[in-house]
């Protein structure tokens, strides 16, 4: 490919990508926390970043924020270099850490006022509005608050300046279900207003219902990256069909997508389906099925499936 075309492509990637990493690697001594990560998060999308504890999610986030420096590879955030352009970039980023440590003797109000002052912004009306919405207590020293109430203050700090990029690490941990709902609404509103959301979580349900695309990380490496629905479509699912009289399981061998057939009860067949369901449905039709049950696969299954593949 001619050099000019390569440059043009790199430029297009850089301008449309809010987060762009290539071969991003971070080692701590002998241990590899992140191993050649390629990520591309587009403007305005909610991007789920999923993986078990220790997979490298927080390390990635700390690299995006210039709290850590890469061992190898490159990282660009909002088109800039987190180290060189750090101050300007961080003005456009809202961050909620997974392990939120707030000064214990300071009230939430004073803490948020300091944060706003350091951003050179007058945010007191927004802070009050967000605190009301999340029912956050801003007038007690933060060391006296429960984990959930401290996290509410963290959420206010991340959202108050209406950032272009929200980086949220395990955001709903410790929040009660009602506040979690409010939080998800806030994420959707921010995305609707044009913000990009980078949502890291090991709570898959959280990502599944909020994110447009998901990357799955394991042991510092990207295992999968796709749209949530596409990732689910890749899943091997179970379809359970009940008949008046079950046909022999052998008659479904060779149907595209059917990876296996079992007969748990005399009137029931259980199909292992990999891929589209159409051919199986067509093959079932002549046997007049009474009932068909195909539980919607969730990301947990995708997760285990992908990890299973990797383990094999």
């Amino acid at each position: 490919m001619p050099l000019g075309t390569q440059c043009a492509r790199a430029y297009r990637e850089a301008v449309s990508s809010v987060i762009l990493t290539r071969g991003l690697t971070k080692r701590f001594g002998a241990s590899v926390a992140l191993d050649g990560l390629d990520l591309d998060v587009h403007e305005g999308e909610v991007f789920g970043f999923v993986g078990p504890n220790g997979a490298g999610k927080t390390t990635t986030i700390r690299l995006l924020l210039d709290l850590l420096r890469p061992t190898a590879g490159s990282v660009a955030v909002l088109g800039g270099d987190p180290r060189r352009d750090g101050v300007a970039l961080r003005a456009r980023i809202g961050y909620l850490p997974g392990d939120l440590n707030l000064p214990p003797k300071v009230t939430g109000r004073a803490f948020l006022a300091d944060q706003a002052a350091l951003r050179r912004l007058d945010l007191s009306p927004v802070i009050d509005e967000l605190a009301d919405r999340l029912t956050a207590d801003l007038d007690r020293p933060m060391g006296e608050l429960s984990l959930g109430n401290r996290r509410k203050i963290g959420v206010v700090a991340a959202f108050a300046h209406r950032p272009d990029l929200l980086v949220l690490d395990e955001p709903t941990g410790g929040l009660d279900p009602l506040v979690q709902q409010t939080f998800r609404a806030m994420v959707r509103e921010a995305a609707a207003a044009g913000a990009t959301v980078f949502l890291s979580s090991h709570v898959l349900d959280e990502v599944q219902h909020t994110a447009d695309r998901v990357a799955v990380l394991r042991k510092g490496r990207l295992v999968a990256e796709d749209r949530v629905d596409a990732l689910i479509a890749r899943l091997v699912r179970t379809v359970r069909v009940r008949f008046t009289v079950a046909p022999p399981g052998d008659s479904f061998h060779g149907v595209p997508g059917v990876a296996g057939v079992a007969s748990p009860q005399p009137d029931t067949l259980e199909f292992t389906l990999a891929g589209a369901a159409g051919p199986l449905l067509a093959a079932l039709a002549p046997h007049a099925p009474l009932d068909l049950h195909a539980p919607e696969p969730d990301l947990e299954d995708v997760f285990l499936h992908l990890y299973g593949e990797e383990a094999q």
Binding site: L65, L67, G86, V87, A88, L89, R90, A91, I93, Y95, P97, D99, N101, L102, P103, F111, Q115, L118, R119, A157
Partner: peptide, 14 residues
């Protein structure tokens, strides 16, 4: 060490 400083280091402050 206690992680309290992180809330400042992530701000637009050198």
């Amino acid at each position: 060490e206690h992680g309290v400083a992180e809330s400042v280091y992530v701000l637009p402050v050198p």
